[in-house]
Computed example of a mutant assay.
Amino acid sequence: MTTRRAFLASLLAAGTAPHMGWAAAGNPAFLAAAKERDDSFALYGLDTEGHATFRIPLPARGHAGAGHPHRAEAVAFARRPGTFALVIDCARGQVIHRLTPPDGVQFNGHGVFADGGATLFTSEQSGTTSQGQVGIWDVEAGYTRIGSFPTGGIGPHDLRLMPDGATLAVANGGIATDPADRTKLNLDAMQPNLTYLGLSRDVIQQVTLPPGLHQNSIRHLAIRADGLVGFAMQWEGAPDSATPLLGLHRIGQEATLAAAPLADELAMQGYAGSIAFSGDRRELAITSPRGGRLHRFSDTGDFLGAVSRADICGLAPLGSGYLASDGLGGLFGIRADNRRALDRYDCAWDNHIVTL
Rank of each mutant, 00 (worst) to 15 (best):
L46R: 07
A29R: 14
G279V: 02
L323P: 02
L31Q: 05
P18V: 13
A166N: 13
G174N: 04
M268P: 01
I218C: 05
L262E: 12
W349D: 07
A176G: 02
V95T: 15
G301C: 09
G93N: 08
G270F: 12
T177Y: 07
E124Q: 15
G117I: 04
T300W: 00
W137C: 09
R80K: 12
A29D: 10
G247Q: 07
L246R: 06
H295P: 00
L86V: 04
D311V: 12
K35W: 00
A306T: 14
A9P: 00
M268N: 10
L12D: 06
E124D: 09
A341P: 03
G67W: 03
I136L: 11
W137Y: 14
L187I: 15
P150G: 12
Q206M: 10
L11R: 12
E254K: 12
H157V: 08
G65I: 03
A242Y: 06
A285N: 02
I136V: 15
F297H: 08
D264M: 12
A348W: 05
E140Y: 00
H68E: 02
L228C: 04
G279T: 01
H249L: 06
F107N: 05
A74E: 03
D280T: 01
R335C: 03
T300N: 00
L318N: 02
G132Y: 12
G45D: 10
Y345L: 06
G155Q: 08
I88V: 15
A9W: 05
G15P: 02
H157W: 06
H70I: 10
A85S: 09
T119D: 01
Y143C: 10
L323Q: 00
D337M: 11
A91N: 12
S126A: 12
T256R: 14
G292M: 09
T287H: 08
T256M: 11
D240A: 14
D202V: 09
L246P: 03
S274M: 01
L294D: 01
A85D: 04
G147N: 06
T355F: 10
G301M: 06
D302T: 09
D202S: 14
L246Q: 02
V207I: 15
F277Y: 08
L86W: 14
D326C: 11
A72Q: 05
L43C: 09
P261Q: 02
A13K: 14
A60E: 12
Q269T: 11
G132I: 13
G333N: 04
K35C: 00
G152Y: 11
I175Q: 02
S126M: 04
Y143F: 15
F113I: 07
C313Q: 09
Q206Y: 05
G50P: 06
Y322H: 03
I218F: 07
